[in-house]
Structures are given as C-alpha cells and as structure tokens.
Design a protein around this nucleic acid. Structure first.
Lengths: 221, 221
DNA sequence: CGACCGTTTGATTACTATCAAGACACGTGG
DNA sequence: CCACGTGTCTTGATAGTAATCAAACGGTCG
C-alpha cells in the first residue's frame, strides 16, 4: 500500500491506478534534488531516506529522516521546485504519486482529502516539536530523544523496537540534532558506559528504555 | 477578507457565509488554550499573536508569531485538541473558520483546496527553516534574521518595513529563538551601537537593512 | 596489505546561560 | 504631583556546555 491510513477500497484502488511504477533506490542515491521541478509526492515503502537542504552559503542541513509509511514532498506543494534533496540511506523502495492526478483524485475522495490534511498537519506538529527539542534540550537529551523516537516509529511499523539499525553517520545525526559529530559520539559512548545501550557499529540496541526516557525528561524538564 | 489569496468570487462569498462572527482579542487574551477541543481554524485580520506550547515539564516554548493574513490552527487538523495556546500580543481581530463547514466547502472548491494545501505546505517549510536557523546560526544572526523576516512580512502587508512595533518581550523573543532574554538584549544593544538599528522601547527602526542582511549571512554562511 | 573514510578520544576555546545588580518605565495610591 | 512598587530591560561577572582543533583508532574496499 502506498498511502497507509484509513482509506476505503475504492480510494485504494483509484490510488493504485494513479501510482506510477514504484522506484528502487540504492544506498546514497537521490530520489530528487533540491531545485528539481516539483511534480510528485512520494511514499516510502521500505528503507530509510533523509531530506537535506543546501543553503546559499553552501552548508547542508538535514531536515528529516523518513521511514517506511511516511510521505515525502509535502513541503513542496506550493512551489515550483523542491526545497530539499532526498537521498536514500540504504536500499529503499518508494511509490511515486504524481501530483496532478492526485489532485484529481482528491476531488472525488473526501477520505483521501482528510487523510492528506491530517498527514500535513502532523508534519507541521512534528517539525514544531523539533524546534522545541533544539531550544530546550541538552545535547545528551536530544540524542536520547532521537533514539526513543526512532524506536517508537520502528515499533509502529512492526519492527523490533530496541534494535535500531542506524544507517546514518554520526555526522548526519549531529547535523540533524544541531550538534557536532564528536558530541554525538561522546553522548553515545557515555550511554554505553552507563549500560543504557549497546553499540555494534551502526547497530544500536536499547537496553534500558525506561531509564533512557527518564534521561530525556530529566535534563531540563 | 478572511482567507487572503487567490480565490474566485464564488468561493469568497461562500466563505463569507461560513465565517462565524469575527472575534476581537485584547492584549494578552487567549484565542484558545492548549488542550481545548479543536473546532476551528482562525485567520488573523489585525494585530499580532503568539503560539505557545506548554510541555509536560512545565516550561513554555513559543512556537510561532502570527501577523495579519496568517492562519492559526493548521497544526491541529488531525487531533482532537489544540497542541498550543494562542495569545494576543496586542489588540487583535480574527476570523473564525469552523472546520466542519470548511470541509464542506472544500468539497466544492478546488481553488480553496489548493489554497489550503499551499498554506500548509508553506507552514511546513517555514518551520523547517526555523530548525535551520536554530542549528546553523549564532545568537546574533538569529536575532538579525528575525528582524529581517518581520520586516519583510510587514512590508508584504503594506506596512512600513523598517519601523517594527515589537510587542514581544525580550523574553519571548529569546524563547522563540532559543536563547536567553539577556542575550537578546545584548545583541540588540550591539546592533544599536553599530548604528544598524534604533531602539525606542518596543519600537525598532531598521537603519541599515543591507548591512543587517550581510550580518545574517556572514556569521556562518 | 595499504589507503581512506568514519569514529572515537583528548585538549583547548568560545559562545551563551546563568546569576546578580542596577536602570528604567509604568501604573497605583497616597 | 510625587513616592512607591512591580515588572521588564540592560549591563556585568562567572560558569558550563558544546564546538573546534588534533590525533589515534578502526573498519572497508580496492
């Protein structure tokens, strides 16, 4: 399924017709690049991708990390060109939803309309929460909250919740959370030393979720 | 007009019928509070308001500052209750757009649909830009960028672009930009000393916009 | 095996928060 | 009208968190 959520059969079928052939991306391949002409919204079927925005000054900012079931491109609906690049962090499958036909379908399906509005609304909220994270939390708490957040999202997908396959470099994590890769590294080692997590390369295993949550809340309640 | 933007006459009329009696808010009065039941989206006709989110830990985070022409409540469309409180920073007029009837109208008006999607998309982008601001810019640059940003938004409304009436406390500015009120104060005095702005209480006059912009770009390009 | 990129760890620096005190503005009540 | 209190703003001194600079340590892939 390409648009997870509460859709009737009819809508699902119509949507199925609309979907252009799904796309497979290899690791580090781009789904689209910043300033490409906007034409489609994408839905992640498998794999993990990142959104990156390149500022005029030349530095990159990682805007989001996308797991299966999530939509990509919602921030481009009112502009000619995508404001970010999207790149696969591992082999990924996506569905392409061409925006024109999608709008047609929206005409007929109140369900789908509600659904899309919901998704966008949620996106707004989650980005706003990120600003809260960035201004009110210490580096340690930010990393911990990211781990908890990813864990919850994995669980919601039916994957193991405390066995995170982090195909994201320390650099990317730091960029995303507004800190240096060194600090990310330091925080992770400290967590490991305290027995809250285990680290095997890109694998992070959450050993004591409850204490992690306490840590996240604790540092500046 | 309650939904600024490109609407046909028909839509505008229908929308006019839909709008519940506008509301007037005195300074520091609440439009709605966090956890109030979601029912309406609001459009600012005059005045300035702020969105504040209260975390479980008890501390507040200012999420947004709303000028005339902007919509409030887009982040609540998929939840039962508003995730933020909205408070007037000065006397303000708003239109209330009850969500149920609005959805009815969306059924019939592709124009309006597009318009709403556009606004939400823009909101996503502007919040994402805020995360960029918070992670990639120094305290000084953040304040400067806020000034420039407000100036541009005022100009777009037809107001004087370099005569900002900042009915926001230093504390609120700091909260919004992720820094202490003291730092805000220091940055503003430095800007004043360098002749880039003038300050008369809440009035900020931009004297050298070009140099301000250079400053904003300069500190960490 | 060696080169290379990402990670870890250490030492130093720097930005900004925090703590504290004084200045200022404003509204109230004497 | 002026004294007073309250809240915000400014300014200063100090402290802390995280950035930066640097170097050693892997793991991976020709």
């Amino acid at each position: 399924m390409c648009l997870p959520g509460s859709l009737g059969h009819e809508e699902a079928d119509a949507l199925g017709d609309l979907v252009k052939h799904g796309r497979v991306l290899n690791k580090s391949e781009f789904l689209f690049r910043q300033d490409d002409r906007f034409g489609s919204i994408y839905s992640v079927r498998s794999g993990v991708l990142k959104s990156v925005s390149l500022s005029s000054g030349g530095d990159e900012k990682i805007i989001g990390i996308h797991l299966p079931g999530e939509l990509i491109g919602l921030s481009a609906m009112d502009v000619e060109r995508y404001p970010v690049s999207v790149q696969a962090l591992e082999t990924a499958h996506v569905c392409e939803l061409p925006f024109g036909p999608l709008e047609e379908l929206l005409k007929r399906s109140p369900q789908l309309r509600r659904h899309l509005f919901r998704l966008m609304s949620r996106e707004i909220r989650s980005t706003q929460q990120m600003t809260w994270l960035l201004t009110k939390k210490t580096a340690e708490a930010r990393v911990v909250i990211l781990l908890i957040n990813l864990s919850a999202r994995f669980r919601a997908l039916g994957y193991a919740a405390n066995q995170l396959q982090l195909n994201v470099s320390r650099n990317d994590i730091g960029n995303f959370l507004g800190m240096s890769s060194e600090t990310v590294s330091r925080v992770l080692t400290r967590l490991r030393q305290n027995g809250l997590i285990r680290i095997d390369g890109k694998q992070v295993r959450i050993l004591k979720p409850i204490q992690l949550i306490e840590l996240a809340e604790g540092s500046l309640a």
